[in-house]
Amino acid sequence: MDFLTLPKRTSGKRTYGLTSIIDLGTPMGELMNNLADYSHLIDLAKIGIGSAYVTPNIKKKIELYKEFGIKPYCGGTLFEKCFYQNKLPEYKGYLHDLGVEWVEISNGTIDIPLRERLHIISHFKEEFKVISEVGSKDSDKIMPVEEWKEEINQLLEAGCEYVITEGRDSGTSGIYEKGGTVKSELIHELLKEIDHNKIIFEAPSPKHQMYFIKEIGPNVNLGNVKLQDVLVLETQRCGLRSETFYMEDLECKLP
């Protein structure tokens, strides 16, 4: 029975308010148990880094996610490895064989010029839903705000469903300082001109997740969420944790 007044959450087949988890080797039995209870809180599942290539029973894992209505995809590092070795046609075949319908195009480890990424996206989007990523995994690499904006806008215009802002699974690069602090000025500048519903902010810890919930609202798209944190995240989104206790009953704080 619902009797509390809580922030309005998107549900069902969400197009925003997404929770994207990172799977870095969750055993099948453990995954089954978690999805049985929490699958309705999860929208996307990234088989993190290049782990899909060496994950036992990867096809069964992909099928399990899809059975629970979750969209699985492989981490961008695997795409970059295939690009580096000139194996993109083979990568397409691999994804089709797995039954994966989403693909991440990134340049977090190697520098792939934007023009070339846009060209790759134009080919992949004919067969897959494309997510792209902006930002480097190198915490020493500084990317100007205008470059962030330009890349995100061009990637969305090229047909990407969403753009991920790099943060790593440690929250120490991309949109974060080395010590894990959010680059808040960068975030504020991005939100001035770009539809936040088309951005997935990598937020690997509850602290990072709370920042974006407070800044944008309960229906912010969040990525690199650990499976064990899914329920805690939903609790935060619903104003049921001390740090978000007084969150307004609005779909989103931004106009």
Score class of each variant (00 low, 15 high):
4 L>V: 02
4 L>C: 03
6 L>T: 14
8 K>I: 11
9 R>Q: 15
17 G>Y: 11
18 L>N: 07
19 T>Q: 00
20 S>F: 00
23 D>P: 05
23 D>A: 03
25 G>R: 06
33 N>L: 15
37 D>Q: 08
39 S>W: 12
41 L>D: 02
44 L>N: 06
45 A>G: 01
49 I>F: 07
52 A>N: 06
58 I>H: 12
61 K>Q: 15
64 L>I: 14
68 F>V: 11
68 F>T: 09
69 G>I: 11
70 I>M: 05
72 P>K: 03
72 P>T: 01
77 T>R: 03
81 K>P: 00
82 C>I: 00
83 F>T: 11
85 Q>N: 15
87 K>F: 02
92 K>G: 13
98 L>S: 15
113 P>W: 01
116 E>M: 08
118 L>E: 10
118 L>K: 12
124 F>W: 00
131 I>Q: 02
134 V>S: 03
141 K>V: 08
148 W>V: 04
148 W>F: 12
148 W>R: 07
165 T>Q: 00
176 Y>M: 05
178 K>W: 06
185 E>Q: 14
190 L>H: 13
191 L>A: 07
191 L>E: 10
199 I>M: 08
199 I>C: 00
211 Y>S: 00
215 E>W: 03
226 K>G: 12
231 L>T: 11
232 V>Y: 12
232 V>G: 04
233 L>G: 13
234 E>L: 07
236 Q>W: 06
236 Q>E: 05
238 C>I: 10
246 Y>E: 14
247 M>C: 10
248 E>F: 06
252 C>I: 08
254 L>H: 09
